[in-house]
Every structure is written in structure tokens, then in C-alpha cells.
Design a protein around this nucleic acid. Structure first.
Ligand SMILES: [Mn+2]
Ligand SMILES: [Mn+2]
Ligand SMILES: [Zn+2]
Ligand SMILES: [Zn+2]
Lengths: 137, 137
DNA sequence: ATCTTAATACAACTTAGTTGCAAATATATA
DNA sequence: TATATATTTGCAACTAAGTTGTATTAAGAT
């Protein structure tokens, strides 16, 4: 059910993700693009881009959905599974290129892991005068 | 803002958590107790019990809230931070008594980690004829 | 240029969770 | 035990993320 047509709206959404490398919450994206397209359209395009292996999604600290670009995925292979990091100071969310080792659990078979780390991001950690933005979505 | 009075409703909620050792989603609890108390009351009691260090909460795979009993917490010290496990077969959610080592990330300070593992639980892993219940909440 | 089908806008809906307030009840005090 | 008072509860209304149905619009194939 992936993206079939190169529409104006698809282009706008893709441009948003090419703007910077951090993840974007659906809430923020809907707000950011509200004058250019309907929220239903945003939701449906994100859905399709994920299907196509162009974006991957995960849940932030409030259980709201976030999306970020995939690196080596396709519609058939989704291998972009990694921890995410949400800054408790500025709200920014990033994909982490680290591998977290899950210990074996007897009699249980772990198939997926969702890991969300929270703390201070690089910018906020290094700066003395942080731009505090608790409400960042 | 913890629990001040030993009311009937508080007792019923606590009994639900003493019934078995797995976590309970708010959705399931509200449904389970709907003839005994209002959903607002369930939400408020859970809130207070968490404040008191009697329960802790976390988000399941859909971003919905779950609660489980704390082990050595109080209203001042909440140390019940651990990974959780959600069975993709029967829906059951459990607290894991394991420690996941988070690698150091340069220039970033990790303060909290939310880890949700998904897979087959002990019962489903061992049984040949699993009771499949995808809709478990 | 025309046709077909997918994409879009819009409104209505669903559902988890919250809020305000009046009525009920736990508990401290007399 | 009776009374006072502060907390808890039920209820209805609300908020906000996300979904669905459908008529209209616009890709892109022929
Ligand atoms: Mn990512
Ligand atoms: Mn737990
Ligand atoms: Zn930051
Ligand atoms: Zn199971």
C-alpha cells in the first residue's frame, strides 16, 4: 500500500524530513504543514512512506508517534531498529546509532525491542544557557 | 498528593493488583471495574497510588498506560525502573527483573530509559497450543 | 486529450485521558 | 455518638490524537 504517485503533498512531507536529521512528531508535522495540507493527508502519507521503508516510526515519551528517515530499508526489509533519544531539555528526538545488548531471559523469546532514552542532548549538554522547551512535541 | 483515605474504591483497585503479578492496563482496569466505580475514579486512584510509590506506570506497545506494583518504592523514592515485556501472543505484560546496560553516548547524558521488549512470554513460549489474543489490552 | 485510479479535503467519528462541580463519605474532633 | 471539614466520588462535558467515509481533484497511463 506504499506511495504510488509523486504528489505535491508527498514532496512537502519529504522535504520536511530532509530539512534536518532529527525525528519529527506527527503532532508537530501536522501543525507545521496545516496551511499546506490536511492532517488526514499527513497521517496517510506518513503511513505510506513507512510502508515503503522511507520513514520509520516510534513512540515518544507521551506515547505520541514520531517519524524519522530510514537508512537502509525498503518496502520488503525494515531493518531500521535502534534506540531513540529524547532530550528532556529542548524536546528534540534523535535516532541513536548504538546497539543495546538485551540479556537473555529464560523461557522467553524476545523479538522486538523499543528503547527510548531520555536525558540531555548534545546541544543542551554542552551549552550553559539552555533553551528550555518542555512543551516541545 | 498521595492517597489519604482508605476508601472502598482504593481497596478494590489494590485487590486487582494483588490478584496476580502481571501488569494491568488502565483500559482493562476501567473495563473490569466499570460496575464498581467510575473511570475517572480509576484514573485518579492510579495516579495517587503511583505518587505513593505503591504502583508504577509505563507505556505499552500502543502508547497506552499500564500499571504494576512497585517493590521497594515510597512516595519519596521511586526506584522501580526496569524493562517491561509484552507478549505478542497473549498480550500479557510483565515487569522484568533484569538490568539492561546502556552504552555511553558521547556528549549526551542519559537520565531515564524506557525499555519495552516484545516477544513470547513463558506460557506462550512453552505451550504448543497458545491462546492467541492479539486484542489483549 | 481522455480515462482510470489514486490522492486529497473535509467533516464526522472514535477513544484515552482530563476537568469542573455538586453530592457523598472518611476521618478528626468535641 | 454527633458534628464539622476536607477528601473522594460520580457524572457530564471536554480535549486531543488518530481514523474513516465519501465526494472531488489530480497523477500518470494510453
Ligand atoms: Mn530512528
Ligand atoms: Mn514494572
Ligand atoms: Zn536538547
Ligand atoms: Zn503470552
Amino acid at each position: 500500500m506504499g506511495v504510488l504517485r509523486k504528489t505535491k503533498s508527498v514532496d512537502i512531507v519529504l522535504t520536511a524530513f530532509n530539512q534536518d536529521t532529527t525525528a519529527i512528531s506527527v503532532i508537530a508535522l501536522v501543525e507545521q504543514l496545516h496551511s499546506e495540507m490536511n492532517k488526514t493527508t499527513v497521517y496517510r502519507i506518513l503511513n505510506k512512506l513507512e510502508d515503503d521503508g522511507i520513514l520509520h516510526s516510534f513512540l515518544g515519551k507521551n506515547g505520541h508517534k514520531w517519524y524519522a528517515k530510514c537508512h537502509n530499508c525498503s518496502s520488503s526489509v525494515h531493518q531500521d531498529i535502534h534506540p531513540h533519544f529524547q532530550c528532556i531539555n529542548c524536546g528534540k528526538v534523535e535516532c541513536l546509532d548504538i546497539n543495546v545488548q538485551i540479556p537473555n531471559i529464560p523461557n522467553r523469546k524476545v523479538e522486538v525491542s523499543q528503547i527510548l532514552l531520555q536525558g540531555k542532548c548534545e546541544d543542551c549538554y554542552n551549552s550553559q544557557k539552555p533553551e528550555h522547551n518542555v512543551n516541545a512535541k
